[in-house]
Amino acid sequence: MFEFVTAGPPSPWTLFEELESLQSDMNRLLSAPEARPGRRSRTSYPPLNAWTSEEGLTLDAELPGVDPAEVDISVVGDELSLRGKVNVREPAEGETVLRRERPAGEFQRTLQLPFRADTGAVKATFRNGILRIRIPRSEEEKPRKIAIESA
């Protein structure tokens, strides 16, 4: 029923590394937690899942606790940038922080899309801490059936 990252088969990282161009990966997380119990020790934030179809690409980003108003998604041509702030809060008066493991700070991730996007039609929803971005292919990149005319 569930898929577990921790106990799964060899992960399909290579696909993702291809998707993510080294030069444009300007990922940055100001205060990465020292202890990351139970999760992979991967530095890129936020973690992403991606799927493709003839229509385009669907991208899920794990961003628990983020304020959607603090997330900026931009798509230019075949490049998608995701940046924002997460868990940036000043301690309340009289409050002591006993433990801090959750990521906090600014993040930015830039991905090379495998196609040129229809930038005007990109849509995003945020539910239970998961941001889902739907990126349609531009019309000229969609597979097209060519009618064969009889001579």
Binding site: S11, F16, L48, N49
Partner: peptide, 22 residues
Amino acid sequence: GWSCPEKPEGHEPLGQEFGGGR
């Protein structure tokens, strides 16, 4: 808690960095 992310229909997976679970 339990998380069972909804996979988009009619799509092929391209890369996965997180999954559902307990």
